[in-house]
Nucleic acid binder design. Structure first.
Lengths: 162, 162
DNA sequence: GTAGATGCAAAACATTTGCATCAGT
DNA sequence: ACTGATGCAAATGTTTTGCATCTAC
């Protein structure tokens, strides 16, 4: 974790940005919640626990900056907010989301499902792919089981997006 | 085109909604611009040409309704706005987007690229897929050619999303 | 000291809602 | 007359911005 911060610090310096305490605190929250898909406000509330004086605007500016430097990923699940997730170094863009339309849970697939598909698109459409976003909407295993057991659709708790 | 409107009219009536002049005008704009990915305001501006008195709220309400009835699709390219596109009847969800990061143009692929992938996800993760969204970000053929010819990155006109 | 970074409040922007009015059956 | 639909303006919620202040080199 510390090494990752160090590496980001270098990356920032290379672009003549500074790793301020606020930026570091924001990055730490992101790193500590790597599994989640936090909104800017989520991040802000978490950062405030250790840095009570940080402003929401700073969090937004930090997230925007990290996003531009491809340190984090800005994603959008179609509810009104942007969400942010750490981007594994080295790992290409092989990382997709499974969103349950019943309970709202978000799972991830860390596999490259699209190698062949990308090749096909590159060749067939002469489109030079840099990145992709793939999201599946459906019913997660848990909700399928609940439905089977209770014979009724399970509890809906949207905006969970854990 | 007229038949499509008729069919939607039935679909609305089946759900005890009415096909009002405003709703019909909105649908016509959507049908006339089936290739585009219009935002709510885009639609509003176009509808106003023939129905100058229509309110933006009505357009929003219509788009929301049509979306719920799966007549149109609400999509999100990550800029701040929702975009809407007609949903081909019969066609499943085999329809993906190629977004050029240089010129902002949006192309579509009307092919089912994910049949195998979906099967794999269904089996491996026990996730019952209902729908998916696949977007490729990259450089379109035109921009590749311009770059090659001029040796410099081509004109950037984001928010085009044609 | 200079340039970038911050916090706050205000602004901007997309979208939704309340409500009085209107239209179609 | 009733019910749903509309237009407008106001409200909402997220994100951005202006600006004075602060911080680090």
């Amino acid at each position: 974790m510390q090494e990752r911060i160090e590496r980001i610090k270098e990356q920032l310096h290379n672009n003549s940005y500074k790793l301020t305490p606020q930026r570091e605190a924001t990055l730490r929250v992101l790193l500590e919640n790597e599994q989640d898909h936090l909104s800017a406000e989520d991040v802000w509330l978490l950062v405030k626990k250790n840095s009570p004086d940080i402003g929401l605007a700073t969090v937004y500016r930090t997230l925007e900056l990290m996003s531009e430097l491809s340190i984090i990923h800005k994603i959008n699940f179609g509810d009104g907010v942007s969400r942010y997730e750490f981007r594994n170094e080295g790992a290409e863009h092989h990382h997709h989301h499974l969103i349950c339309v019943h309970c709202g849970a978000v799972d991830e697939i860390h596999e490259d499902l699209l190698g062949e598909v990308e090749k096909a698109v590159n060749d067939k459409f002469n489109f030079h792919i840099l990145d992709h976003r793939l999201t599946f909407h459906g019913i997660c295993q848990k909700c399928q089981e609940t439905a089977k057991r209770e014979g009724s659709p399970p509890e809906i708790k949207l905006n969970h997006y854990g």
